[in-house]
């Protein structure tokens, strides 16, 4: 399922409370969310629980999804991240995002923009495949193991500067893949 279709499903949930759209979204994301949580080392039962709670949040927070700002996968990632902080660390997540309803001025989006958005999503999907292995290693450790960059450096036995530069390189690659309107 491509990101445009997934985005549309989230928008449909927001606009119409559509349970069929939710079930479709669940089929795509639930197994990935669970896999992500398992990679975070929480054990299968907790991973299942994190996944279910995250999917419930997807339903409840669908109105905060702004397809112009993030892809469906990115937005769902942030839901899982926040759930993990909430459930495992029992902390709140101070969030930059103001949870208001994003503007959906459909007439403002031209064919050009649509084309650009599609391009972006294709680039993003392949961004991970194209990153050098040493950058991916750092990213995986940071994202999957809930570790700060300095802990990642310690555990990989790398100088802090090396980890910093790998993060910077991966990010600049990622930012280059995003159009000006999105970054």
């Amino acid at each position: 399922m491509d990101n445009d279709h997934l985005s549309n499903l989230i928008v449909t949930i927001a606009n119409a409370g559509d349970r069929k759209a939710f079930a479709d979204l669940f089929k795509h994301f639930a197994p990935r969310l669970k896999a992500f949580a398992v990679r975070q080392g929480v054990g299968s039962t907790t991973a299942e629980e994190l996944m279910q709670e995250s999917m419930l949040s997807v339903w409840r927070k669908a109105h905060t999804f702004d397809p112009k700002r993030a892809t469906a996968s990115t937005w769902v990632f942030t839901i899982l991240r926040n759930k993990r902080i909430d459930m495992l660390r029992r902390e709140n997540r101070p969030d930059v995002d103001i949870e208001d309803v994003p503007e959906r001025a459909s007439d403002a989006s031209s064919a050009d923009e649509d084309y650009q958005t599609r391009q972006t999503r294709d680039l993003l999907r392949h961004a991970m495949d194209e990153l050098p292995a040493d950058q991916v290693e750092v990213l995986q450790k940071a994202f999957f193991e809930d570790k700060s960059h300095s802990v990642v450096a310690e555990e990989l036995n790398l100088p802090l500067g090396t980890v910093k530069s790998r993060i910077r390189l991966a990010l600049s690659r990622m930012r280059a893949a995003l159009p000006e309107s999105q970054i």
Partner: peptide, 18 residues
């Protein structure tokens, strides 16, 4: 941009049976 990296990791992960 960092969150996009998280999104890319999530979409490329090998799914796990629920």
């Amino acid at each position: 941009a960092v969150e996009s990296l998280g999104g890319a990791l999530l979409s490329s992960i090998e799914p796990e049976e629920v």
